[in-house]
Design a protein around this nucleic acid. Structure first.
Lengths: 228, 228
DNA sequence: GGGAAAAACTGACAATTGTCATGTTTTGGA
DNA sequence: TCCAAAACATGACAATTGTCAGTTTTTCCC
């Protein structure tokens, strides 16, 4: 099994603020899990006994609303640490984490995390910075949700996917989401998302081959997102 | 001027994890400000040189969307610390903070905060807990915004105001917001908020005297909020 | 206390978005 | 490879919400 000390992923998350011994402890207690698309990492309401460090693949963090719809709050990729928030506040998970494609994650028992938080201020501050950043992003999502139209938000979603997950060799978005997932990111009905995506195709803003989507007119999409 | 060591407000926020010397330093460098209703504590994009600890009154944290509407992301009251996030990530403020009524706040220069974060893990973890809690709340707001109707959100807003700010001696909500502010909390047009409030009055869910509002039928309001 | 400005309210209408029903295409496993 | 299930797509319609254009009420300042 790999050693955390050598794990490149670590450069992207708060574990980089750990010292040698702390990392060794994490390395000794962690376990690696392989997940297939659609598998659940943890569910809303679960008591988490540790955090999950994403080594590969993408996870959607979502919450079921009372009316039965799923709202995707965030997409987490390589380097993200899932479940941190719940471990810190010692509450049950507020969101579900589900694999969007095949994934590899490391499970790190919480004791190693909590003890380090309490003894190593560098680590605590590093985690703090990450959570503070997440909070800013969440605030921005709130504003977008309430002030932008569905069409604007769909356009933004494609731009977001391109910026955060990139494109494959053929220019298609590297992360392929179902129409339903897109609707759940944007916070709308699946049919509405489909209709808008069709419209974008007609306007030449995007092109699609099966469920793979490519941005065809970046500037145009941007204009739609900005509402002009 | 008051000493932080004796400040009761401190019990409600992360400053309670500071030790004697750290508190003394805060006490020596802080300044107290009195603000009138409507005054700006800081604006979106401002570079913050410290944090603001709310001793009295209520502040709205909001963000202007490109279309000119203000979205209120959070209401902060006694004990809240404003600007923490920006100081931690060393970014400009993401939100504006405006006094909703007359306020008294303490300005604490950031050095005292940052130095303590870096040296006292208890303080860092305490701040972490608070921000983690804010993040959970923000995630919940995202879900509400996208999955609930305006009517449900208005009902929730009144329940929220009652739970967090209480009632005065006559049973009216202690915090009075303008219809516009309510609309900006809920993320809707002012006219829509007004119409729904009128409807709630007709249904006997609330009663109003001028802009003061009282909850008349808690259970009924709850049912509306839950969508039943 | 009077008067102007701000806030609250109302109506009519249009635009956006959701729902339901149904047909078509794609996908993944036997 | 073929078939069933899932995903995608579209139409018709209803419900929700926003916009604009006013009127009325309240607030607060001189």
């Amino acid at each position: 099994m790999g050693r955390c000390e050598n794990c490149i992923i670590r450069q992207f998350n708060s574990l980089r603020a750990m010292n040698k011994e702390e990392l060794k402890r994490v390395s000794d207690t962690k376990t690696t899990k392989i997940l297939k698309k659609g598998e659940i990492i943890f569910g809303e309401g679960d008591k988490l006994n540790g955090v999950y460090c994403v080594r590969d693949g993408v996870s959607k963090l979502s919450k079921l609303s009372p009316n039965g719809k799923d709202q995707i709050v965030k997409l987490a990729t390589k380097g993200a640490v899932l479940g941190q928030r719940s471990v810190i506040t010692e509450e049950v998970a507020n969101l579900s984490a589900i694999a969007v494609n095949d994934m590899e994650v490391c499970f790190i028992p919480k004791d190693a995390i909590i003890d380090t938080l309490n003894s190593n201020p560098n680590f605590a501050v590093e985690v703090l910075r990450h959570i503070a950043h997440d909070l800013k992003e969440a605030d921005d999502v709130i504003v977008n949700m309430s002030q932008k139209t569905v069409k604007q938000r769909v356009a933004e979603a494609f731009i977001y996917l391109e910026e955060n997950f990139g494109e494959d060799q053929n220019g298609y978005l590297a992360l392929t989401l179902s129409r339903e997932d897109i609707a759940n990111v944007v916070g709308t009905a699946t049919e509405s998302a489909i209709r808008i995506i069709s419209e974008f195709k007609k306007l030449g803003l995007i092109k699609a081959s099966g469920k793979k989507v490519a941005i065809a007119n970046r500037q145009g999409l941007n204009d739609v997102a900005k509402g002009s």
